[in-house]
Every structure is written in C-alpha cells, then in structure tokens.
Nucleic acid binder design. Sequence first.
DNA 1: TTTAACTTTGTAATTGTTACAATTTTATTT
DNA 2: AAATAAAATTGTAACAATTACAAAGTTAAA
Lengths: 140, 140
Amino acid sequence: MTVYEYLLSYQIKPSVQRIAIMDYLLKHKTHPSIDEIYIALCKDIPTLSKTTVYNTLKLFVEHGAAKLLTINEHNACFDGETAPHGHFQCKYCGKIYDIPLAFDREVSEKLETKGFQIEETNLYYKGACPQCAENNVKEQ
Amino acid sequence: MTVYEYLLSYQIKPSVQRIAIMDYLLKHKTHPSIDEIYIALCKDIPTLSKTTVYNTLKLFVEHGAAKLLTINEHNACFDGETAPHGHFQCKYCGKIYDIPLAFDREVSEKLETKGFQIEETNLYYKGACPQCAENNVKEQ
DNA sequence: TTTAACTTTGTAATTGTTACAATTTTATTT
DNA sequence: AAATAAAATTGTAACAATTACAAAGTTAAA
C-alpha cells in the first residue's frame, strides 16, 4: 500500500506535504518532534511551513493515523505506529524506545466497570538505556 | 509529622515558601499546575513569585518529594503522592483521577534483563470520566 | 557583627504552539 | 476550458509556559 492509499484509509485527503510527513513518520521510528520532521523535510520541500507540520500532525492524530506522545516535557513527539505499545525514554541520551504494552487488563476493566470510558492508554518508562547505563557505570 | 519534618526527610531545607507549596500539594490531591498553586498561595504569601513556584517544584521533583506529570500536553502538573500509581485524565472536564498501578511485572523485568534501568513509570489513561460519559450520552 | 551562602523575587528572554489572513492549490460547476 | 468555490499551505504575529539571570532579601556561620 502506498502512503497515498494509507492516508486515504484514515479518511485523510492526501497532499504533497501530508504524504511527505506521513512517509517520514512511517520510515523513521524515532518518535520525532515537529522540529525534526520540519528540518528533515525542508530539503525536499523548501517551501514547507512549520505551521503545516503542526496542522498536519494534529490532523493525523485526530484521524488516528498518528499518536501524540507527551513523554517529553519540553515538546510533543509523534509516533506513526498506531498499534498499542508503550515507550521507554532514556533520561541521559533522550532516545525513545518502543516496548510491548502487555499489562494486566484487570485495572482497565475495573475502571470501565466504574463508568470510565478509556479512549487511550499511555505507558511511559523513564531511566537509563543499556548504552547510557553502561557508560555511567564506567564513569563512576 | 509536620510538613517541615517531611521536607527534611527528603533532604530539602524548609522555608516559608517551600512549606506552603508542599502543604498545598499534600492537602490538594488535584494534581495542580504551577498556576493553580501560585494563585492559591498568593493569598497567604502575597510576595510569592511564580518563579519560586517553578524552582520549588523542580527541587521537589529532583529530591523525589513530588512527581511531574506530563499527562497534560499544555502544562505540567504535579503530584505530592510519591507511592507508585497511575492516572486517568478526562478529555472533557480535564480532571485527573488516581488509579492503582497494578500491572504486570513481566514487561519491566524483561526490560531490566535487557539492560534498561527503570527509574520511573508513568501510566496515563485518557477518555471520559463517569460524569462526562453520562452527560455526553444524554446530549446525543 | 560581619561575612558568606542560600533563597526569593521580578523582569526579560526563550521556546513551543496557535491564530489568522493572504496566497496558492485543488476540485467543481458552468 | 474558464470561472467559481472549497480546501490546503504559508508566513507572520500573538500567545502561553518555562527558564535565565541579576538584584534584593533571608538565613546560617564565623
């Protein structure tokens, strides 16, 4: 399936900019920020506006084609992977890792019994990734 | 234990401002923002500066006496409850509820086996709280 | 009591994000 | 194909949350 068709499957009208941004999201599993996407795509689309990147990602999130991550307190990150999963952010290098989201249904079921309607779940771990953990040990 | 002693137990040197802010956090389990705290305490401490509220909460978080919540994309919220637990934020009224954090150890253990050092865990549910869920149904 | 260290304060700067009007592009109708 | 309408993109300006920083105030130590 092309990115063009992929956008259509989420009821999003494709455009050059939208295709480029979704393509970037699908090919770069780095949970990029607005700036990362903007800087990367400016080379191919020199007229690209940062506002368009903001608008487009908002649109993607509204249509369920991308997920907004609030794991980083300084700026929003985006994930093109829509299947449920969690994240681990290294406090030292900042990298965000995907992790399986395989926790107990018990809690969410209990919430739903009480009348809470869960629309999304975010699981964020923070700490030291293997590389940084090793480096820190060596420094000490 | 007084708030004064409580701060000391976290290696935080007490001051009028720090005591007032921690007292507010401990008495108001509403996961307040900087502004909420600032506005509430200005009545008692008219000279209070918003910068002090920022500095103080940063200090609390560094010392483990408060937890920073990034559940709200527009501004930071703070939680004086340090025991591990998750949160549910209603997308309609904005209220944040505490929920038990009783999910599988399996995932975190697997991460630790791979060399990840987990320092904190954040579980954020979002959706409709019981009240808002009911109101929405009635409107439709 | 003097000095040093730390805390608080207010202002200004910075940064991420949003509002908005003008322009450009795309789709529709004639 | 031309005219019109609708939608998307752009750039600038506004906004809001946060941080930097220097001055003033407070507390602790000598």
